[in-house]
Design a protein around this nucleic acid. Structure first.
Length: 877
RNA sequence: GCGGACGUGGCGGAACUGGUAGACGCAAGGGACUUAAAAUCCCUCGGCUUCGGUCAUCCGGGUUCGAUUCCCGGCGUCCGCACCA
């Protein structure tokens, strides 16, 4: 019986239109069913979707469609992270308008996403560059400010003198601006900050409750927040050496226990004491200048030598007025951590040891391993950093370091120097406040007016949004908002005198820190969120399943966690402080690279052939041999990009989706291969054949499960697959769900051929009918178009996208008879088929009667017989 | 340097809390159908083997009746942070 091949090109648009017309994926906030919120990280509208998007959105779509089938009220929205530098770069490079460039890109990408057949609620689409979105962001900025969560202060920034703008650290390459190539300067600018450090402890502690987040991401966040417990310790300066007005040096240390091993102090080049000392000391000034210009790249830091310069200053040891220690300026001490000063204990810190050895400073061991001899224990090239016993430390000798820590902290806390205790316990975080000011055009304007007499004044809420001007030019460097002839000139909202708008815009991470909340009611013009639907008993948040790339493990996710708390504090959320209940970080899409005589070549230009197991590549046009390079992330520079449009155009969306879900575990990288895509496409065709060829003979057959014979085997296979696929989708094991579906298709192949040939019993037909009905629904989350087509040919009414997930019969999922492997001395030697509920004694008896066992025993008694119920029998001879 | 993850056929990968190692797919080889090709279908597919076995999950030890899984020590790959006091 000849069946036409499945034609994705006609089928897919047809069903997409049908879903659209039925408004199947438009979600109502009033729907009383249990809510489920699936979200994939929204894209930047660069112009075209890439394979990473295809993978990300396919996974989300499987979860969304599966939950929908399970009867949830599913929210699965899509929007655009639409502010950012590329639009401005396009404006500078090609003279286009950032706004129209962005909106054109959105249109193009939306069309591409639609072709993928995603179950998205487009009625809730938002773009962060739209005033109807950023209006609320401006309002929240002001609310946060009022709540004490925003601060304006001076900060060091990377300044590109040519482009006249601030650069993010990532935009500084080898000390130069990534676009201009100009040497970047450190400048002090007054900037806006979100006070995320006020929540350091809370953000750290709450990580423990995120049990549906990858451990890896939680660990990365914990390290980023970087809590350490130590002591602030004040060392009096030796008056004979101190600069005028200076009396002490304050350091932060996590190891006060090693205080008797101290042999020097080290301060950062930017430390006030260093600057003061340098005033009358040109050599020191030159040294400070030198280390300031040291490279900051990873490679340079790794190889950087420990360098220091003796300031001539001396400090007095807190426990010994006669003990003076030198103060060095050192290149490895950072001004922005702790106090910018440390005491060096060479025996307990490798860095300090290297430094001491270089400058001939004493090395006194103060901790030795348990059981070592204090008289002979020496530290030469390697510091001892582990736990042990205190030595050479006067009243601390014999204590454990932890005990010594407390002893020192307590003793010095009781000593008053200048009216303050000499030591104070202090918890220190690595986390910095979030600098949100950017000197750029294409971002959310900061709604503040600067007035000479009133200072920084919030724009009244009634005047929001402060919209970006449309008539801007990019013909000169710097911020177009600053250059605009009129935009920044306004009257002060407080005193009415002439004032100036803040011309900075917000970091685009602000835009993405609350979009998930906006999706819950994007129609609310009066407020960022609608409290009755955003969270709480009838609300959407937290997002039940959030899916995106690992590259956002720290910043985006941490900022969003901060935002949720800040929104709660300012009344924009009811009770949710963790915005994402479940997080999944998917792997990248990677591809082989190809390199010809004239550089990188795209996969589309290459044909790969197999010669006795070794693969070789040639140029399609003239057969030039091409070198097959390493497998790498798809990138324009390596030209190893495969365009989703091409794949969907030639194979269809379902093939692309199926391939993305097959084989590779979703958290790992998936290697895009032509052979793999063809394999996926073969399965699409095979399923279609399977269903469409059987459909005529199964028309009108009533689905029913069976438990015996051929029909029973069919039913058991189907019901087991329903169970397994459901479980795997729930734990996002898409590759395993795919494998189970292959197994069912394999199991149905032969019986369906019999049926098509008219040789099957009614029971078999009924079982097959039920199995096929189930199969069609099982594939629907992954290959929704094919599923609809199969459903239709089987005579189903309505659409699969609207059908409930099938139930499985527990009795069919467990076999009444099982095959137990029988081991002798832990090696498998035979099988035992026995009733599932057979008791241990019966199993043991049956196992011992097996021929292989009898043979191994040679008439002797077994030493031991282990029976693991329903698992295995092991006979120890 | 610190922290973490991982290491299984030619390849991507399965194997639930320690219980039959290699599910499923890709590639390869053989066969059927065809004038031929494509498509499709069937078979084989870790090594060695005297066909009974035997060795195999990075390497070396250990715990256990039994280890891909747990412990110790190496080696390798990848990721994050980076002179954090």
């Amino acid at each position: 019986m000849a069946t036409e091949r499945y034609n994705a090109r006609t089928s897919e648009p047809k069903w997409q239109k049908a879903w659209d017309q039925a408004k199947l994926f438009e979600t109502s906030n009033d729907d009383p069913r249990q809510k489920y919120y699936v979200l994939e990280m929204f894209p930047y509208p660069s112009g075209r979707i890439h394979m990473g998007h295809v993978r990300n959105y396919t996974m989300g779509d499987v979860v969304a469609r599966h939950r929908r089938a399970l009867g949830y009220n599913v929210l699965h929205p899509m929007g655009w992270d639409a502010f950012g530098l590329p639009a401005e770069n396009a404006a500078r490079d090609r003279g286009v308008n950032p706004r129209s460039w962005t909106y054109q890109n959105i249109e193009a990408m939306k069309a591409q996403l639609k072709v993928m057949g995603l179950s998205l609620d487009w009625a809730r689409e938002i773009a962060t560059c739209d005033p109807s979105y950023y209006k609320h962001q401006q309002r929240m900025f002001l609310d946060f400010w009022k709540a004490g969560l925003v601060e304006r202060r001076s900060a060091k920034v990377n300044w590109d003198p040519e482009d006249m703008t601030v650069l993010a650290n990532e935009q500084v390459v080898d000390g130069r601006g990534w676009r201009s190539g100009a040497l970047v300067e450190q400048r002090d600018l007054t900037q806006w900050f979100f006070k995320i450090t006020s929540m350091s402890q809370e953000l750290l502690d709450s990580l423990d409750m995120l049990d549906k987040w990858p451990e890896k991401v939680k660990l990365m966040q914990a390290n980023w927040i970087g809590r350490s417990q130590g002591v602030l310790l004040r060392w009096p300066l030796d008056p004979a050496t101190a600069p005028s007005g200076e009396t002490e040096l304050e350091v932060y240390t996590t190891r006060p226990d090693t205080i008797f091993g101290a042999s020097f102090m080290a301060i950062a080049g930017d430390h006030p004491l260093a600057r003061k000392s340098a005033e009358g000391n040109p050599a020191l000034a030159a040294f400070i200048e030198d280390i300031r210009h040291g490279g900051t790249s990873a490679a340079e830091i790794e190889t950087a030598e420990k360098k220091g310069f003796d300031t001539g200053l001396r400090v007095v040891h807190p426990f010994d007025p006669d003990w003076l220690l030198p103060v060095y300026v050192a290149n490895f001490v950072l001004m922005d951590y702790g106090t910018g000063a440390i005491f060096g204990c060479p025996s307990g810190d490798q860095r300090d040891l290297d430094f001491a050895n270089k400058y001939g400073l004493p090395v006194v061991p103060v901790v030795m391993p348990e059981g070592a001899d204090a008289k002979t224990f020496r530290i030469l090239e390697e510091a001892y950093v582990d736990d042990g016993v205190m030595i050479n430390s006067r009243f601390l000798d014999g204590m454990a370091p932890k005990q010594a820590f407390d002893e020192v902290a307590t003793r010095l806390a009781g000593v008053s120097v200048g009216g303050r205790p000499q030591a104070e316990r202090k918890v220190q975080f690595r986390l910095r406040d979030w600098l949100i000011s950017r000197q750029r055009y294409w971002g959310c304007p900061i709604p503040v007016v600067h007035c000479e007499s009133c200072g920084a004044v919030p724009v009244p809420q009634s005047e929001l949004p402060i919209e970006l001007p449309v008539d801007v030019t990019f013909d000169r460097p710097g911020n177009p908002l600053d250059h605009h002839p009129t935009w920044k000139h306004v009257d002060c909202p407080q005193c009415g005198r002439h004032a100036r708008r803040d011309t900075d815009t917000m970091d685009t991470f602000v835009d993405s820190s609350w979009y998930f909340a906006r999706f819950t009611d994007p129609w609310n013009e009066a407020a960022p969120t609608t409290l009755s639907v955003v969270d709480g008993p009838n609300g959407w948040l937290p997002v039940n399943q959030y899916i995106g790339g690992i590259e956002h493990a720290i910043l985006h996710l941490l900022y969003s966690r901060f935002f949720a708390r800040a929104m709660q504090a300012t009344g924009h959320l009811n009770s949710v402080s963790e915005p994402f209940e479940g997080l999944f970080t998917q792997g990248m899409v990677v591809h082989e690279t190809y390199r010809g005589p004239d550089g990188w070549v795209t996969p589309a230009e290459v044909k790969v052939e197999d010669f006795d197991g070794s693969r070789r590549a040639f140029l399609l046009t003239d057969g030039t041999p091409i070198e097959i390079g390493s497998i790498e992330k798809m990138s324009k520079s390596k030209k190893n990009v495969v365009d989703p449009d091409d794949i969907i155009g030639s194979y269809g969306a379902d093939t692309a989706r199926w391939f993305m879900l097959s084989d590779s575990p979703p958290e790992r990288d998936v290697i895009w291969t032509e052979a793999g895509v063809e394999g996926a496409h073969r399965f699409v065709q095979r399923l279609w054949r399977l269903v469409s060829e059987a459909a005529p003979t199964l028309a009108g057959v009533v689905p029913a499960s069976a438990s015996e014979g051929v029909a029973g085997a069919i039913s058991k296979a189907a019901h087991k697959t329903v169970k397994a696929v459901g479980e795997e989708i729930e734990r996002l094991g898409f590759n395993k769900a795919v494998a189970r579906i292959y197994e069912l298709a394999n199991a149905l192949q032969a019986p369906l051929a019999e049926i098509a040939a008219g040789k099957a019993s009614p029971a078999v037909k009924s079982a097959a009918r039920e199995a096929l009905d189930m199969l069609v629904i099982l594939i629907a989350p992954m290959m929704p178009h094919l599923a609809e087509e199969c459903f239709a040919v089987l005579g189903g009414s309505g659409m699969v996208a609207d059908k409930p997930w099938p139930d499985f019969d527990q009795a069919l999922v467990v076999d009444s008879e099982i095959v137990m492997p029988v081991q002798i001395n832990g090696k498998k030697r035979g099988d035992l088929t026995i009733a599932r509920d057979a008791d241990q004694g019966a199993v043991e008896k049956a196992a011992l009667e097996l021929e292989v066992v009898q043979k191994a025993l040679e008439g002797k008694k077994p030493r031991k017989v282990i029976v693991v119920p329903q698992r295995i029998v092991n006979v120890v001879v």
